[in-house]
Design a protein around this nucleic acid. Structure first.
Lengths: 111, 111
DNA sequence: TAATGTGCTACTAATATCGAAGCATGCTAT
DNA sequence: ATAGCATGCTTCGATATTAGTAGCACATTA
């Protein structure tokens, strides 16, 4: 059975509760998903640019992740611009990945 | 070659830059990692309780994730208490805990 | 019309994860 | 002391996911 896109209200891998947080944790816990959101937070990218930015990850995975992110309305594709975050995703990435201070302190603590 | 724990300053899957953000994205993008942090944010848990909370995920994966999280100093294990977040990890998880409004709006937008 | 860019799909191989079983240690009650 | 019981795992074959390479279809540009 093919893995389906985790969305609020649906059963997701590891939880049958339908709670949005579980869908989000499942979605973001797939390989390359966080990285893609991160790379797109810098601005719109074409499929190939995105692939390059992701250190040459397979097109098959990139494409699967983009499909999931589009179903989850976190990414949209527009002909001229390429792939970009929805405003909703921008908010998420802002909350989630504005971690500069935290990252510095994490890195220091591990030296 | 076995997958190693992604840490700041090291080469991680998908990036040779050593940047802390890349280590974090790799670490958090592994299955169950986000979920474990989420479950532990409610308080310390024993290995088995954590496994139950994670809907019966395999002990092998849970154990691998816990090892990684301990190496990354995001989780500690104390004999009496079980597994728990470090203060650093708590700060990080704050980011998820403050997502309630975002999650509601995400869920609504997908109905 | 040939070259280039873009967004993919198809396929096989490698890796990661699942799922069940079970082991070792340290309690605790009998 | 010993028979449970909880905890923290380890092992292993089966299954699922991801990686990696090749190449197709369409559009634009030269």
């Amino acid at each position: 059975m093919a893995k389906s896109t985790p969305l609020p209200g649906k059963n997701v891998r590891g939880s049958a509760s339908g709670r949005p947080i579980m869908a989000l944790l499942d979605l973001l816990g797939r390989r390359w998903t966080l990285r893609i959101l991160w790379e797109l937070s810098a601005g719109a990218q074409t499929f190939r640019d995105l692939q390059t930015a992701c250190d040459g990850a397979s097109p098959s995975v990139i494409n699967t992740r983009l499909k999931e992110l589009r179903e989850a309305r976190l990414v949209i594709h527009s002909a001229g611009e390429g792939y970009q975050l929805t405003s909703q995703a921008s908010e998420l990435v802002e909350k989630f990945l504005t971690l500069n201070d935290w990252l510095d302190s994490w890195a220091r603590s591990l030296k």
